[in-house]
Design a protein around this nucleic acid. Sequence first.
DNA 1: CGTACAGTTGGATTGTTGTCAAACCATTGG
DNA 2: CCAATGGTTTGACAACAATCCAACTGTACG
Lengths: 107, 107
Amino acid sequence: MRLLPHPATENIELTEVLRALSDPVRLEIVARLAVAGEMTCTVAGDDLGVHKSTASHHYRMLREAGVVLTKQVGRLKYMSLRRDDLDRRFPGLLDSVLGSVLGVPRP
Amino acid sequence: MRLLPHPATENIELTEVLRALSDPVRLEIVARLAVAGEMTCTVAGDDLGVHKSTASHHYRMLREAGVVLTKQVGRLKYMSLRRDDLDRRFPGLLDSVLGSVLGVPRP
DNA sequence: CGTACAGTTGGATTGTTGTCAAACCATTGG
DNA sequence: CCAATGGTTTGACAACAATCCAACTGTACG
């Protein structure tokens, strides 16, 4: 099991996170990760409507911005949201974005 | 007093807002508006380190994304954050961004 | 070992963006 | 009316980004 290179929590930049989340395809990937938790690239990128190399490009953007964590297990790569890191650095940001994407439960 | 064209609240898109906020210059403008409230373009763009035409370009991005409201009074244009609209559409988003930019008061 | 699978990389293309400079437009004050 | 002020537009340019396709790399399974 190997971890790919990621930015340290302190080095996650707000503008880069916002930039990473500002693409519809990436936002969809993030939403899936939020709902289903850790998943492989293939699953995360299923039916996105883009070529798999394009999806791969988006995985890297998300990883380099500090939004997702990627670890390799065998020939699979698992992605997951860096919820805790993001929340420590930008409290409430991810929740509000996910709330808007997934729909907020209203009392 | 004239209002410039703006997107209606329902038409404000999350990805466009995130995109608008993902530029350091625009984020600085938004932070100033958050702190000082309504202000003219000249004041908002003072000492940003970019040419005034570049600043003007950013004002438009922010307006077209639905982040700011611009009204013309005489030869001045006043910008203000669309706090209520944004909060209705994407609850908590603007607050979390501003909190991260301006620093959150911790108890 | 070789084939299939999971994902990345490189190249090409097309479109977008941030920037400056210079010219422009609109409003107001003399 | 003319000049100054406040912003915008246009043109040019370099950098970046999203996309596809094809070729590639690495891992495991038969």
